[in-house]
Design a protein around this nucleic acid. Structure first.
Lengths: 214, 214
DNA sequence: CGGGCGTTTGAAACCCCTCAAGGAAGGTGG
DNA sequence: CCACCTTCCTTGAGGGGTTTCAAACGCCCG
């Protein structure tokens, strides 16, 4: 934890605070570099997390070295929960300078027990995660490669951009998209060019996408 | 709701009960036939559910008619949550006579707010669901067909059977397995016969599997 | 006994992956 | 400022796994 700062600038150690609506007071803010681990598979989960700015990927590595990304997290998303003591995945920062609020598990669980508003916030965060994961399962197991890329773009636009806007600055590489969609990078590329040639999207550089026809 | 009975046999209408550790008192027990809907996609979610006995599948239907099963739920599992007002999937009973405890949403949310033990139970249920879904994503997007079937069998044995036992009575058809794993029934069949011919499993009829080598 | 459902096997077509190579963009050191 | 490197992106050709289409078998039940 090379850099850490507090939400409110008060005292430096995480303070167990059970008072309602005081989520920020138990948080430690940490800044992560690109590709830096926030937590790793099989490690103890003593913290819960919430993204302040930037983005993260939740992933696992297969024995053959292939990587599967299960979820992309954006500002406001909670992550790091587990029903057991160990994490089932790893999480890394995607963009440079991603800021994450870290909550000591005992403290935030105590806060959730005493403050219904906090408990509800966490509940809604987990419900949203479940819906994203179900959508993800739906995408990777029923759709063809071009359909997956198209679904990814539409879904990501809805999450990251203001509604109505069709311009989209992707924070992630083709490799990330491939590992998220269960495809190879080459197939993702071909899907992008296909969509462009069909007039469904337009590209200004590889990372700036405009969705023309959903 | 053709048949309904109470957990504890007390009065007949769902009673809003905020007292701690009183989850059962707000539950209505319902019994479902095989393939009967428990709730449907896009419908309002006014209830949360927990399986008492039997099994359910959570699924969506594509526009081309294909079905994707996102999760299989077994006794003790909570389901039916949503961060919005409408369900993102449908849920059906798989086995005849599946019994589900149904909790009015307002009542169980109020209970969760007032009773930390209930809130924790729900939290752990959702965390377990998240881990199952992540595992599911991992399986369907990185594994070959035989690997998926093998992973399904091992995972299902761990969930349904006593640990150590290798005998497994599948409550679901090849079609269900195919829609869960994102494969065609034919491919699932071929994977089963492959595993049998290699001596990894033995079959006594299509639905009774013994895992010999995981 | 016939019908329907679930299961199994076979052959051909297709989609995606792998392997290979080239191009574009950004950072670093000379 | 340019050469060089690394990383990311893109395109092409061949091979393999899965789907699709087709058909047959066993089984339960009316």
């Amino acid at each position: 934890m090379e850099r850490s700062s507090r939400f409110d600038g008060s005292d430096c150690e995480p303070r167990i605070n059970k008072s309602p609506k005081d989520l920020n007071s138990i948080a430690i803010l940490r800044t992560f570099q690109r590709d830096q681990d926030i937590f790793e598979h099989y490690h103890r989960c003593d913290w819960w997390y919430r993204i302040v700015s930037g983005a993260t990927r939740k992933y696992r590595i297969r024995s053959d070295g292939r990587r599967q990304i299960a979820d992309i997290n954006l500002p406001g998303d909670f992550f790091g929960f587990s029903s057991s003591d160990a994490h089932a995945s790893s999480v890394q920062a995607i963009v440079e300078g991603t800021i994450v609020a870290c909550y000591p598990r005992a403290a935030i669980e105590a806060l959730a027990d005493s403050d219904p508003a906090t408990a509800k916030l966490i509940r809604l965060g987990t419900f949203a995660a479940i819906e994203r994961l179900e959508q993800q399962i739906f995408v990777v197991s029923t759709m063809s490669a071009p359909e997956r890329v198209r679904a990814f773009l539409v879904h990501f636009r809805d999450r990251i951009g203001r509604s109505g806007e069709s311009d989209l600055a992707l924070p992630i590489t083709r490799y990330d998209i491939a590992d998220l969609l269960g495809l190879s990078t080459e197939t993702v590329c071909r899907a992008f060019t296909d969509l462009r040639e069909r007039g469904a999207i337009s590209l200004e550089g590889p990372r700036n996408v405009t969705i023309i026809r959903p």
